[in-house]
Amino acid sequence: MDKTERAIELMKEQKYEEAAEIFNQVIEEDPEEPLGYINFGNLLLHINDLERAQRFFERAIELDEYAATAYYGLGNIYYEESLYPKAQENFQKAIEIGLLEADAYFMLGMTFYHQEHFKLALPYLQRATELDPKDEEVLFQYGLSLAQSDHLKDAKGVFENVLKLGAQHSDAHYNLGVIALYDEDLTQALEHFDAALEIQPEHTLAANGKKQIEALLNDL
């Protein structure tokens, strides 16, 4: 196990100071190698030291303008700071250079989602689901973007797949309840809102949806 591998193992064990010492040694031994700065930047990002992390990623890019994971790191920093257009720019750059991984497509899709460009988010979130079809969160966010883009039938199928991956996903039940309301299927909507509340009793939106349906049923 080389120094970098050892430092990454220490990060996984949450021994951040020890990992930082080793990453620092790696940089001192080869200051022109961008990977050392990227790894140190990732550590700093992990402990939420965003300002210093940014400097390390930018230094990596100075050394290698095609360091895709450095752009991905910068994208994560801007995303954490809610600077979604700048995050979008860096995630796009990372993908253009060749970081064709589910996380990169997912994060790019989420930058569009947070800017309420739901239709623009769709192809990237869809690609993320293709690359990592068993990730509940990726699939769920794709379903939300479909729903926000008025593709309710497709969204319903995605939310149902989320529940196949994890039956305890209260928000998937809630959104299926909302879609059932649009379809005027009050019984199914109530079932989904009840399921959401059983999983998460403090689910306010599901509780409001249930009250709304019960009021409608009482008026019938």
Rank of each mutant, 00 (worst) to 15 (best):
L100A: 07
E81Y: 04
T69L: 10
Y78L: 04
G73I: 09
E96S: 07
E89D: 06
F91S: 08
L83F: 05
Y84R: 04
Y78I: 08
M110P: 07
M110C: 07
E101V: 06
I95C: 03
G75S: 04
M107L: 12
G75D: 02
Y71T: 07
K86W: 09
N76L: 14
E81W: 12
Y79E: 09
K86D: 15
Q88Y: 02
F91Y: 15
F112D: 02
Q88L: 07
K86E: 14
E96D: 13
E101R: 08
D103N: 14
N76P: 01
A104C: 11
K93F: 00
Y72G: 03
Y105G: 04
N76Q: 14
Y105W: 08
A67Q: 09
G109C: 07
G75K: 01
E80Y: 15
Q88M: 14
L74F: 03
M110S: 08
L83R: 15
Y105R: 06
L108Q: 13
T69F: 07
L99A: 14
M110N: 11
N90K: 02
A67W: 10
I77V: 00
I77Q: 03
L108Y: 10
F112H: 14
N90V: 00
G109F: 12
G109Y: 10
A87T: 05
A67E: 15
Y71A: 02
E80A: 14
Q88K: 15
